[in-house]
């Protein structure tokens, strides 16, 4: 029971999604519309799951006064304030929710990713090596693209942007396309296995 029903659900829903591509007519088309609308709602519930886990882990940490429990308080505080303001008074520009979004969320998330600029710089110096011909080719192409895509490159030599454009348009497109076709086939075989119940990893190990 615990396995059979989920497998049947996946099979039916998956097949409908495939068949509807070829059969636009009513019963199939309608079923497909219906599933789509439901999926959006179910997707939204996933966030409750994530937040529930967060509360569980950090609530536990505070309860047991584990090392760093103060940080967990801060985390739950941020969570609570955002939920109360957002659900209570709305989320449009002008609300307190939006104010918090703009002055807390925005700067912090941008800065998290801006850190990577520093790490790339240090890795460039310390780790990115032309250890063989392939890596050499990769680095040459990278340097040409990096020069060609900024104004300084053009100022240094007029041909840099032309070369970068060519790399992007021709060999890059060819390489990317080979990868894309390969990945597409991988997706087809994985999806097929999931729909037919040959692959069951998503249902958990038990």
């Amino acid at each position: 029971m615990r396995r059979q029903i989920p497998l049947a659900i996946t099979l039916v829903v998956g097949l409908v999604m495939v068949v509807q591509y070829f059969v636009p007519h009513k019963p199939v088309g309608n079923l497909y519309d219906l599933f789509n609308t439901w999926a959006i709602v179910i997707f939204a519930f996933a966030i409750v799951l994530g937040v529930g886990n967060l509360i569980k882990i950090h609530g536990d940490r505070i309860y047991r006064l584990e090392r760093g429990w103060g940080y967990s308080v801060l985390l739950l505080l941020g969570l609570t304030v955002m939920i109360i303001t957002g659900i209570g008074w709305g989320i449009e520009p002008g609300t307190s929710f939006f104010y918090l979004y703009w002055h807390l969320y925005v700067p912090m998330s941008s800065t998290m990713f801006a850190l990577l600029a520093f790490f790339i710089a240090s890795a460039s110096y310390r780790a990115f090596r032309a250890r063989n011909f392939e890596a050499f080719l990769l680095l040459i192409s990278a340097v040409l693209v990096m020069l060609g895509r900024v104004p300084m490159g053009k100022a240094l030599w007029g041909q840099f942007p032309v070369i970068a454009d060519w790399i992007m348009k021709v060999p890059n497109t060819a390489g990317q396309r080979a990868i894309m076709i390969g990945i597409a086939l991988g997706v087809v075989s994985t999806s097929l296995r999931i729909i037919l119940g040959i692959e069951r990893a998503h249902l958990g190990g038990e």
Binding site: I40, S72, G78, M82, I87
Partner: peptide, 21 residues
């Protein structure tokens, strides 16, 4: 870091509540 994780999760909850739920 911790404030960020909390705020972003709360952000998503409010958003999904108002726009989907």
């Amino acid at each position: 870091e911790h404030l960020f994780i909390g705020v972003s999760a709360g952000y998503w909850v409010s958003y999904l509540y108002q726009n989907v739920f």
